[in-house]
Amino acid sequence: MSSSLLAVENLRMHFPVREGVLMRTTAYNKAVDDVSLTISPGETLGLVGESGCGKSTLGRCIVRLYNPTSGQIRFDETDITNLTQRALLPYRQHIQMIFQDPMESLNARHSIGDILEEPLIIHKQGNAGERARRVTELLDLVGLPTRSRTRYPFEFSGGQRQRIGIARAIALRPRLIICDEPVSALDVSIQSQILNLLIQLQKEMNLAYLFIAHDLSVVKHISDRISVMYLGRIVETAESEKLYRSPAHPYTRSLISAIPVPDPKKRSPRPTLGGDVPSPINPPSGCAFHPRCPDCLPSCSGEPPDISVVASEHYVRCVLHSDSPAQTL
């Protein structure tokens, strides 16, 4: 896979759980466990799953806000997994992040102009005049009036703040943006404005997105391919239309059927997935989904299933499909 912009291989992020007076490590929270994925230039990979499945941790590992326990993150064929913060700096401008809550991710004491200029200063881009022009350009790109530069985050609505977060993320002309639940805190009518902006910027700048969200209808709208995560592992990856039309993993099927359809004529009794996501500190044996799985077999609690190929570019981690094991991912 030489064409990929980002390649993550067998990534693990295990947080130690410390207890007692001596703060001894008693267990590990396996937030991300053996995850592999690739993103091509200009592509959107959607990442869905219930809360606590490790989506955000994975995103934060990729931008190296966390130092992964093991595995490899390659950006543009360079291994960035163990780079020091200083050596990482040139890559930081290519990998940016948009956070869920723009109120918390924007410094309330900085004006919008300062917020947008900061990445340019850190990466020593242009002189003061050029930077000021770039800030104006950025505000224009995300659809905010130029006079916003002297104003402060609290003066903006949630949707406008998210536009500021997006402007900051694209300030350095990155090639990959990790979007961590960028629209889930927004109202319905604002959500579609932001989704349209993200799609438009992607076309203009050939951006790649890792789009993390729990809302499958939003993810499906924006993504080329989707990975479904459950308890630290990716259980299914497919092209988004294919994932929705022919989901292979029982978990993906349950997720899709649980989404309320905004059409009263399509109201029908549906099988509901029981129970909650188990704790990643002490996950179920074998396939982590087996205690909730409607199609569970006795063998599911034994060995964790390997990745199999159900169709081209459609990978699933489930014993029901184990007759076609994957050679590589």
Partner: peptide
């Protein structure tokens, strides 16, 4: 304006301009 599971991906969604 709501993205639907059976809509075509990556198309521009109709929006309500402005804010409440």
């Amino acid at each position: 304006s709501i993205p639907r599971l059976d809509s075509i991906p990556k198309t521009v969604l109709p929006v309500i301009e402005g804010i409440v």
